[in-house]
Computed example of a mutant assay.
Amino acid sequence: MTYVVTESCIRCKYTDCVDVCPVDCFREGPNFLVIDPEECIDCTLCVAECPVEAIYAEDDVPDDQRDFIALNAELSRQWGPIVERKDALPDADDWAQRKDKLSELKR
């Protein structure tokens, strides 16, 4: 099992989770983070750190977010690692509670 970043992260990109990851499994895109399923060791540390509750165990991903399992795998092969915390996107707080943000994802 691996952990998965879901839609809540889009246009927020809080990186609190990156600081606690012992294996640097996060990958960074323009306005979203993903977890590399090949690197994730299922430690659960990132889950509690996410201020928008975007990270789930693969088995616990909500039904309407299941496509993010494949999306994390796909994008983790394209994007580079992020190993240090950075500032969230400038308007992250405005986007934090919005739903249906998949169309906002920049690849």
Rank of each mutant, 00 (worst) to 15 (best):
E28R: 07
N72H: 09
D91Q: 15
Y3I: 00
V4E: 09
Y56L: 05
D87S: 10
C40S: 07
A88C: 10
E84Q: 12
T15S: 12
L45A: 12
E53N: 15
V61R: 06
R85Y: 07
E39L: 12
I69A: 10
D67F: 08
D42I: 00
V52L: 01
K13D: 08
T44M: 11
R11W: 12
R98N: 12
A92R: 06
Y14E: 02
K99W: 14
C40L: 04
T44L: 13
C12R: 14
E49T: 01
N31Q: 08
D94V: 15
A73Q: 11
D16I: 05
L71Y: 10
L71S: 05
D67H: 12
L89K: 13
A73D: 13
V20Q: 03
W95I: 03
I41Q: 15
C17Y: 00
N31A: 05
I82F: 00
E84C: 02
P51K: 10
C12F: 05
A88K: 15
L89H: 04
D91K: 15
D36W: 01
D63T: 13
A57T: 05
E58A: 12
L33C: 02
G80T: 04
L102V: 14
D19Q: 11
D87E: 11
I69D: 05
I35K: 02
M1N: 12
E28H: 04
E7K: 05
P62W: 03
C46L: 06
A96W: 13
V47D: 06
R77S: 14
G29F: 03
V20W: 00
K101L: 09
P30S: 14
D16K: 15
R107H: 06
P37A: 04
D93L: 14
P90S: 04
